[in-house]
Write a protein that binds this DNA or RNA. Structure first.
Lengths: 221, 221
DNA sequence: TAGATTGTTAATCGATTAACAATC
DNA sequence: TAGATTGTTAATCGATTAACAATC
């Protein structure tokens, strides 16, 4: 089943579909048309049908889509039924927040171990995960490939840690450091850049406040 | 100075430019051409010139761009020299991580106060920010408009809290709840969806592993 | 069967890239 | 001045939307 290269835009919409379908399932809806789904998500029905058609034929003419079945297809496309191994590097506030609150398993990921440099943390247990000294990192790779490294170290250490992980053979990095990592093209990097997001918000806020001020000025004239 | 509607893609690239220019400045570079900047960022020089031209003329023919000046222009476009007021709702791990480690001031944002429901937190101080009971939230709006609410409450409370904030007149929400908020179109919502990001990573990982497996299979044949 | 809705092909729209005159 | 590089216009490419035959 050869599949043409799927655009990034489509891939980024898949998690939203998954979320929406979960919501519909919870609400007891078991069937939905592309039209109704589009209305609820602010997309056109065309776009939704185009998106799904990248991966197969999940609907039925005259009926629409079965919510549960469609949910399963998308979950499977996203790899949630696989088992990805992960290590977490940097057990600061963010690292701890992820270990304690984020449901990795739900998405097919399993945190094997966590690493930090601070002596007071080594050997302790957070959310059932053992914290090791960073020097132990190579041992995580002895048992087999590591699919993801969750990187939540301070900015200053970001690229050094990333390079070490890449040298050890990590397949991908989920990057929380707010730093642009420069690693070889073979490693997948997925960024969560808080600062980029807040800066974008700053732009939208400025824009909206300027627009309002301009409207005020016009009215007063 | 009327400015045509700037596309989202452009806006999302601005923080990356800012980051890169800071890096160049630190490295002592004080002048750069669109060609060199493109090489370093993986963009075409055309795109870079097109992006900047949405906002004005920041370069000089035959010379390129002055790093410091350009950095200043972009920072100003993003509103970092403004003063946005913010409240933080939900002082869990993520909320605390943001208060303690994230440099809001650097981006023009100032956290005024934080709110939670847990009695043991009320009245305490985290990173210089006082934690109030959530019932005190309306008082934050008495002193003047609140530009941003950082929303980091548990999923189950997300929409209720969002609606209250909107009713109180908040201008925007920086949403960390992993929930799609349904608020009126008048409020700006900027999402940090960890789960969407990890699911996308799962897709890319699956894709790359399938590709490798397929290559193996071809070789073995 | 008639109505609804899919999957897909064609048309449109927008974003990226290329080209080049202007000019530092 | 000559070389370099901008800002902008035109060309290309890709993504979204519209249309419609197929069919449940």
């Amino acid at each position: 089943m050869k599949q043409a290269k799927v655009s990034n835009n489509v891939i980024r919409r898949l998690p939203r579909y998954l979320r929406k379908l979960d919501e519909l399932k919870t609400a007891g809806v078991d069937r939905i048309s592309s039209g109704e789904l589009g209305r609820q998500m602010g997309l056109t029905s065309s776009q939704i049908r185009q998106d799904f058609s990248c991966f197969g034929e999940f609907g039925q003419q005259g009926y629409g889509y079965n919510v549960t079945a469609l949910r399963g297809e998308i979950a499977s496309i996203l790899g949630t039924n696989r088992h990805f191994s992960a290590v977490l590097v940097g057990v600061g506030n963010i690292g701890r927040a992820l270990i304690e609150n984020f449901c990795f398993e739900q998405y097919g990921f399993h945190i094997v171990s966590a690493y930090d440099v601070r002596p007071e943390l080594i050997g302790t247990d957070i959310g059932g995960i053992n914290i090791h000294d960073i020097s132990e990192l190579p041992r995580a790779f002895e048992r087999g490939p590591v699919d993801v490294a969750v990187l939540s170290v301070p900015k200053i250490m970001a690229n050094r840690a990333a390079r070490e992980l890449v040298d050890l053979g990590v397949r991908s990095i989920w990057n929380f450091t707010n730093v642009e990592l420069d690693v070889g093209g073979d490693v997948i990097v997925e960024n969560i850049h808080f600062s980029d997001s807040l800066l974008a918000l700053g732009y939208y806020l400025s824009e909206s406040m300027d627009a309002k001020a301009a409207a005020e000025a016009r009215k007063d004239k």
